[in-house]
Write a protein that binds this DNA or RNA. Structure first.
Lengths: 224, 224
DNA sequence: GGGGATCTTGACGAATCCTTGACACGGCCC
DNA sequence: GGGCCGTGTCAAGGATTCGTCAAGATCCCC
C-alpha cells in the first residue's frame, strides 16, 4: 500500500488528514516536528511526504534540505503563508509541490495523485534470495532456476508475509490475519493447504523443506 | 537548451512569459489556442508545457487529455479560477502542477524548476525491444516485423504503462488508474478488452501470449 | 452533418483459483 | 498399544476471474 508521511504540529489537522488519507487507501504515518519527521522518514521510508513549513523545532525548509540529503521522495509542502518568497524557497529547497492553507481536501488529494503518478517509476527493488529460489518483492515475482514461478494471489500474499520478516517466526494467527483477514484466525487448514503448494512450487524437496519451516503448534518461519 | 511551450490566448502575458523565460535561459515556443498547441507539441516536443485553461477554441482540460494521449511531458497549468473542482479536474487529467492567476513570476519559475528537476531523474530508455515487437516510447511508435503497428490512444497508454516497468507486475488498479483515471478502479473488464486487442496486434500467437502476461486475480506483466 | 474510428457495455464458455472435506502420517501422553 | 493432536496430502465442487465477441454509444475529423 502507498505510504504517506504527514508532518504538521497542528494535531487537529494531523488527525483530519490521517482519516481522509486512510479513507482513500493510503497508509499514513505522522510526525509533529522536524526531528521526528526525519527519523520516521529514515526508519520507514514513505512513498510521499506532506510537510508543513511551520514546525516548532526547526524551519520547514531546513527539514526539507536535510531530507534531500539522502532521499528523493516526493514532498508536498503545506504553508499558511501566501508570500511568494516562501514558495520559491521551499520549491528550490527540493519541494515538488506547494499548497497554501486553507486548502480543499479534494485539491490536496488530486495534487498527491499527480505527484505519485510522476514518481511511480522510481521505486527501488527489494529482492530476497535463497539457494533454491529468489523473491522479488518489488516486481512481485519469484524465480527458480531462472524460470519464473507462477503463484496465485493467496500463495503470493502468504509468501510475502513470511519473506518480509526473514528468520522470524510468524504465528498462524498472524498469517491468517494478514492473508485472509482477522475473521479467519481459526482456519488453520488453509495454512496447511497453501504451505504445501508453496513448498511444491519452491522447495527442491517438498517433503523436507529447508526454507519454509513449520514450527509445530505455533506457526511458520522463512529461512533464506 | 531546455525548451518550454507556453500556451495562452493573452498575447500580453504570452510576450511577458517569453521574455522572462528566455532571460532565464529557456528555449521558448508559444501557442495561442489548443489546436496549435497540440500541433507544436507534436512537431517540436518540449521539455515542459505551461498551459492556460482558458483557451478560445477548446477546453484546457481537453487539450491536456489529448496531449496525454501520446506524451508524458510535464505540464504546469495556469488558471484564473480559484475553484477547487477546476484544480482537481486539471490535475486528474494529467497536469503536474497548478498555479492560479495572478501569480508571481518568481513562483512560476520556482515551480518550473521543481518540475524539471523531478522529470530529470525520471528519464529512462525510450526504446524497448522484444522478440516480437519494438516499442519506441519517445516517438510513440510500435514496430512489428519492421511495420508500423497502429494503436489507439487507449491501447497505447496501457502498453506504455506496462512497458515502462518491464518484468514488473502492474496491478489492475494501477493500470485502470493510470489509463482511465482513479475513478475507474473497478472497471476491470476494460482491461480484458484492451489487453485482448493489444495481444492481437502485438503477440505472434494471441492465444498464448509471451510478452503480455496476465497474473490471474492481480494484474498484468510485460516481459521483454 | 455524415462516416469512420474508438470507446463502452453486456453476455457467454473457458480457465483459474479458493474452499472444503476426507484420509494418512508421525509424535506424544496415558 | 490406543487415542489424541497437529500436520501434510489430495481431489472435487463451487465461486471467481479471464478471454472473446459483438452490438450500441460516443467522439472526432472532414
Amino acid at each position: 500500500m502507498t505510504s504517506v508521511l504527514v508532518v504538521d504540529d497542528d494535531t487537529y489537522l494531523l488527525r483530519a488528514l490521517r482519516i481522509t488519507l486512510q479513507a482513500h487507501g493510503y497508509d499514513v504515518a505522522t510526525a509533529a516536528d522536524g526531528r521526528s519527521a526525519l527519523l520516521a522518514a529514515q526508519q520507514h521510508p514513505p512513498a510521499l511526504v506532506i510537510l508543513d513549513l511551520g514546525l516548532p523545532d526547526m524551519d520547514g525548509s531546513a527539514v526539507l534540505r536535510k531530507l534531500r540529503g539522502w532521499s528523493s521522495v516526493p514532498v508536498l509542502v503545506l504553508s499558511a503563508r501566501h508570500g511568494s518568497e516562501d514558495k520559491v524557497e521551499a520549491l528550490d529547497a527540493g519541494a515538488d509541490d506547494y499548497i497554501t492553507k486553507p486548502f480543499g481536501l479534494e485539491e490536496l488529494l488530486a495534487r498527491l495523485r499527480a505527484l505519485l503518478r510522476r514518481s511511480a517509476d522510481t521505486e527501488q527493488p527489494v529482492v530476497v534470495t535463497t539457494e533454491a529460489f529468489t523473491v522479488d518483492l518489488g516486481k512481485r515475482r519469484v524465480l527458480r532456476d531462472g524460470q519464473d514461478v507462477r503463484l496465485t494471489p493467496t500463495e503470493w500474499k502468504m509468501l510475502e508475509v513470511l519473506v518480509r520478516s526473514p528468520e522470524k517466526l510468524v504465528t498462524q494467527q498472524q498469517l491468517l490475519s494478514e492473508v485472509w483477514g482477522p475473521a479467519y484466525a481459526k482456519e488453520t487448514n488453509y495454512l496447511r493447504v497453501y504451505m504445501a503448494q508453496l513448498r511444491r512450487k519452491l522447495e527442491p524437496d517438498a517433503a523436507t523443506p529447508r526454507h519454509l519451516i513449520t514450527e509445530a503448534g505455533i506457526g511458520y518461519r522463512f529461512v533464506p
